[in-house]
Nucleic acid binder design. Structure first.
Length: 469
RNA sequence: GGUCCCAUCGUCUAGCGGUUAGGACGCUGGCCUCUCACGCCGGAAACCGGGGUUCAAACCCCCGUGGGACUACCA
């Protein structure tokens, strides 16, 4: 029987969850779900100076917003240092690691000198055979193999061969007694029975050292899969310079989590020509074979398109819930039923929830402010009488539904032999203050008869006032 | 500098020796239409270069070139 698949996502809590991390998490999560395995979350907080609880919370929030639930964790690496230290002692006892008293300053100087001389800046082995004892500020180094090769069998990139002499004696325990990343990650992945390490390909160069560590410790080496980076529009690694990179910033901008997930999964992974995937489809279809080797540029336009797609398909009640924090003050306390109608009107024409709230501002105001050009261009004396007549006839209209209004306007136009076109824009401006809006009939139904009549009368007054001036 | 990775439309990608090189975003022409959006129909747009291997190369190999990552007592 084969071991149950276990993947993990291991962010360091030194900031929010960013787009790249989210995709790594997503791939791990999908791979685990697809194979009926488990997904473990581990917070790598051994850097005491940079890690914060705040970041941990932010990461957890973002994961849960995306729907990436874990089966285990979060584990905290810093709480496992006893384990790490025990392994350090073991390696020292076996002669596979040694104490080193070279100071950071000395090392830095040597590194610079080597670089200046055009040589490789690796540790020169000063303390390698000194058989030093532990002392204040001493670090522990892994005694690496200096000959032979190490092959990383990568599920995405294929086999990658490294000469062991390229690998120097890396520090596994710092002067402050905490383990370094390359060591802790090996111990934890091994002890947590992680079977597949799926992570960013910025880690490929660390992998041979880690493999050597697994072997020195007597652990089974897991499978590795290195996912290519996500780049910004200038092809450099995605960073704040390129705009929003925090997952939660997308929530605040009015994106739906399924849109982000769908977008992210298509960065590097494909299933034929399919673009739209439900979460269940992703779980069924996801595989590492279909993950590409080359880096991908983050394209906000496509994300927007997907978001619009998911907004169109979402239930109104759900959108209403998601949009609660996004409304401006004036609309926040509106009648929920009214708000839902507004959302229904805007739903097919917005790319983000935030955009919906902005576009829908006119529904909630007491009286309309005509947009600069709109009032001047469409609220003209020529249409004055039409607007007056409509305002006059509306109270008697029995069926104030979309169909009823449509029919009313049609008849109205036929009676006086004018095209709907003639009256539509003025009416739109009267009702919304803009030249662009949802359909007149939709707006009227949502607004309700009373508000519609009031707004038309306001427009009538506006035209009369301007005519006098 | 060294090590490693990568290379199909502007972007995300399909392609896994024989295709009119397909789809999607974006751009664009048209239709629909009360504006906008949606939707529908059409268009422009790509195999980085050079050598091999082969009857045949976007696909395999080599060399260039270009990008990226790593090179910490960060993760």
């Amino acid at each position: 029987m084969t071991k149950k698949t276990r993947t993990r996502f291991a962010p360091s809590p030194t900031g929010f969850l960013h787009i790249g991390g989210a995709r790594t998490a997503l791939f791990n999560w999908l791979f685990a779900r697809h194979s009926g395995g488990q997904f473990v979350l581990r917070i790598e907080d051994t850097d005491q100076t940079r890690s914060t609880d705040e970041s941990t919370r932010a990461i957890l929030d973002a994961m849960s917003w995306l729907g990436l639930d874990c089966d285990e964790g979060p584990h905290f690496q810093a709480q496992r240092v006893d384990l790490h230290r025990e392994m350090v002692r073991k390696l020292i006892a076996e002669g596979k690691a040694y104490y080193c008293t070279c100071t950071a300053e000395e090392l830095e100087a040597k590194r610079k000198a080597a670089l200046a001389a055009g040589k490789k800046p690796k540790y020169d082995g000063t303390c390698r055979n000194k058989d030093l004892k532990k002392s204040a500020g001493s670090v522990v180094r892994f005694r690496g193999a200096q000959t032979g090769i190490t092959i990383v069998e990568d599920l995405i990139k294929g086999n990658i061969t490294f000469n062991n002499d390229e690998l120097d004696d890396l520090i596994i325990e710092r002067g402050d007694g905490y383990p370094t990343y390359n060591f802790a990650v090996v111990i934890d992945d091994a002890l947590m029975n992680i079977t597949h390490v799926i992570r960013g390909d910025d880690h490929v160069n660390n992998t041979p050292r880690q493999i050597l560590l697994y072997q020195a410790l007597g652990f089974a080496v897991p499978k590795f899969a290195h996912v290519p980076m996500i780049l910004g529009s200038d092809k450099a690694r995605l960073s704040k310079r390129h705009g929003a990179t925090s997952v939660m910033a997308y929530k605040e901008m009015g994106f739906l989590p399924e849109a982000l997930v769908n977008y992210l999964v298509r960065l590097g992974w494909a299933h034929g020509d399919q673009e739209i995937f439900s979460l269940q489809e992703l779980i069924d279809l996801f595989s590492l074979d279909a993950v590409g080797k080359s880096p991908a540029v983050f394209n906000p336009e496509k994300l927007l398109w997907l978001n619009a797609h998911y907004i169109k398909g979402a239930k109104i009640t759900r959108l209403a819930e998601e949009m609660k924090p996004l409304w401006p003050e004036g609309a926040k306390n509106a009648d929920p039923e009214f708000t839902q109608k507004v959302i229904a009107d805007m739903q097919p024409r917005a790319k983000t929830l935030l955009e919906m709230t902005t576009l829908a501002d006119f529904y909630f105001v007491e009286s309309i402010n005509y947009a600069n050009e709109a009032g001047q261009k469409f609220l003209l004396p020529e249409v004055l009488q039409h607007l007056k007549d409509i305002a006059e006839k509306l109270p008697a209209l029995p069926d104030f539904s979309k169909a009823g209004i449509e029919n009313f306007l049609k008849t109205f136009g036929e009676e006086r032999n004018i095209k709907l076109k003639i009256i539509a824009q003025p009416l739109r401006v009267a009702l919304t203050g803009k030249t662009v809006s949802p359909g007149i009939d939709e707006v009227m139904v949502t607004l309700g008869k009373d508000r519609v009549i009031k707004r038309i009368n306001d427009a009538v007054r506006f035209i009369e006032t301007r005519a006098k001036a």
